[in-house]
Design a protein around this nucleic acid. Structure first.
Length: 517
RNA sequence: GCCCCCAUCGUCUAGCGGCCUAGGACGUGGCCCUCUCAAGGCCAAGACGGGGGUUCGAGUCCCCCUGGGGGCACCA
């Protein structure tokens, strides 16, 4: 029998990083065993769902290369893959459960339930609801359920021990006496998660339910529903939750906000986002996949990082190409303990993947950022394209994310924005302006204009003039770029060209003179 | 409160009774390289939560405690 797994997100408008991790484990497991990975949309809770909220989820998966074999937009033999379109199926299954004495209409009123709950809390007893209606005969139950719009409850059998043999957790047990009778169908006829998911897993012939550990406590109920519907149990594997950095709490949108650092904020501003947007847009929140895409992380780096979060291949592998990951993935090697998400390690990994990327692909990746920041404009002519190529090359391994081009390369495409402290430190020295001016005349004659000859010219000049090369280099850097960080100076000058270099030296001069009065 | 789960450096992890004076990676600190930054090289600090057992021998098996987490809806 072929392995079939599924991931069942609610259309919430964004793809959560923890969710992707779970989906990835499903996907890896499926690819490893040559089965089918199903994407099913849990959209029965219509109040919380909006139609356009699905697209970001599909986009996110596609960007990461986690492609589903069946589901939205690709279809499949068990369509439809939206729970909102499968209501008939749940209705039939519900009726089957009532007829077989496994479910009953809940006769208790909302007020009665509240009172029960409060009493239990006051008495510090666990709240376990066993509904009024439990003792109805199947025929009575069916009749009442048909006549009145009442919620349907599943009848938990008493006095039983449920034993789960989880692929990750191993043996987990529950006493059914401690389980209340859960509502499985709302009074308006829509199914609840615990029920719909089982009905679909049966219908779609899911063989392995790989999901987040927060669902562990739902499992005994679902196992009983499988049984009541006369279906075989799938295998279960509960993967530990992903926690936020430095804590042991489940990753949440609100708490991830603080990981938008000043540098990231600067980049996002350069891309045209306002502070309000940066603080509020869901796709700019580090708990979502969209955030990493927006900042130009390579998808393969995110996949590798997430795959290694809670799973390991051996005692030394960090960078694991996808093929390797698929070949070796196993649930046995998924760690039992929750794992906290580490943005630093992800950033490092992004750099590792970026350095392996061919230059042409880096150029292609960087162009959208330059366009959005208004540093280049469409259409990009061959000369500009060549310049971008040289800039990317000069940036070298400084580039870990595509958006890093904005921190290391922006000044190539616009006038320097002079950082006052840099000017103070490197240009304001006595005599520095005169030296720069004299060196400018050397630059007038340097031939050919390339990094190698520029460096030779500078070193000879420094020897002649008794100037420390470092001082002049730093002064030139600040003069031509406005800042103290960036690619090697001679690469910068070579790319800028003679005229632009000389123009910027002049610009810097007026800057300093303006400042010193 | 109740149920369930988890427990090795700050973080991700290796370890499946002796190869462990606990290994790797990110991060951190120092040094080297160097025109800055990044990268790179070298070095360093840094963990088996506590207590009982079992065993010739425990990070590894069992129990208790402690700590952390998840779940207890006509949400998923």
């Amino acid at each position: 029998m072929s392995v079939r797994t599924r991931f069942a997100p609610s259309p919430t408008g964004y793809l959560h990083i923890g969710g992707v991790r779970t989906a990835l484990f499903n996907w890896l497991f499926t690819r490893r065993h040559g089965g089918q990975f199903v994407l099913r949309i849990d959209d029965t809770d219509v109040e919380r769902n909006v139609p356009e909220a699905l697209q970001p989820i599909l986009d996110g998966f596609r960007w990461l290369g986690i492609l589903w074999d069946e589901g939205p937009e690709v279809g499949g033999p068990y369509a439809p893959y939206f729970q909102s379109q499968r209501l008939q199926l749940y209705q039939q299954a519900a009726q089957q459960l009532v007829e077989s004495g496994h479910a009953y209409p809940c006769l208790a009123t909302v007020e009665e339930l509240d009172a029960e709950r409060k009493a239990a809390e006051a008495a510090k007893r666990p709240y376990i609801h066993r509904g009024k209606g439990r003792d109805l005969s199947p025929t009575e139950a069916l009749q009442i359920w048909r006549e009145k719009r009442l919620p349907l409850r599943f009848k938990i059998p008493l006095g039983r021990k449920i034993v789960l043999d989880d692929l990750i957790r191993k043996r987990v047990e529950w006493e059914t006496d401690l389980l209340g009778d859960p509502v499985i169908v709302r009074s308006d006829g829509r199914p609840l998660y615990n029920f719909a998911t089982v009905v679909d897993d049966i219908a779609m012939k899911i063989t392995h339910v790989i999901r987040a550990a927060e669902h562990l406590s739902n499992t005994p109920i679902q196992m009983l529903i499988f049984e009541a519907l006369g279906a075989n149990l799938p295998a279960f594997a509960h993967v530990p939750v992903v926690c936020e950095p430095g804590s042991r709490k489940k990753l949440s949108k609100r708490d991830m906000q603080k990981f938008v650092t000043a540098e990231v904020r600067a980049k996002l501003r350069a891309l045209g986002y306002s502070d309000a947007e940066i603080d509020n847009r869901i796709d700019l929140n580090p708990a979502t996949v969209a955030y990493y895409r927006e900042l130009g992380y390579l998808p393969q780096a995110l996949v590798n990082y997430l795959g290694r979060l809670g799973w390991s291949l051996d005692d030394h592998s960090e960078i694991i190409p996808l093929e390797e990951m698929i070949r070796h993935f196993s649930l046995e090697r998924v760690n039992d303990a929750p794992a906290s998400f580490d943005p630093d390690k992800l950033y490092w990994m992004a750099g590792e993947y970026m350095r392996q990327l061919p230059l042409d692909e880096k150029v292609a990746g960087v162009i959208p950022y330059l366009l959005r920041a208004g540093l280049v404009h469409e259409p990009i002519d061959p000369a500009t394209r060549e310049k971008i190529r040289r800039v990317v090359e000069a940036c070298g391994e400084r580039l870990k994310l595509f958006s890093d081009i904005l921190t290391y390369g922006a000044f190539f495409f616009r006038d320097p924005q002079y950082d006052p402290s840099a000017v103070q430190k490197r240009l304001a020295k006595p005599g520095m302006l005169e030296i720069l001016e004299r060196f400018a005349s050397v630059l007038q004659q340097t031939e050919p204009w390339d990094a190698e000859h520029l460096e030779t010219a500078l070193r000879q000049f420094c020897e002649r003039e008794q100037v420390k090369p470092g001082d002049l280099i730093h002064a030139l850097r600040v003069s031509t770029t406005g800042v103290t960080v960036g690619p090697g100076l001679f690469d910068i000058l070579a790319i800028l060209g003679r005229d632009e270099t000389l123009r910027r030296l002049q610009l810097a001069r007026t800057q300093v003179l303006a400042r010193t009065g």
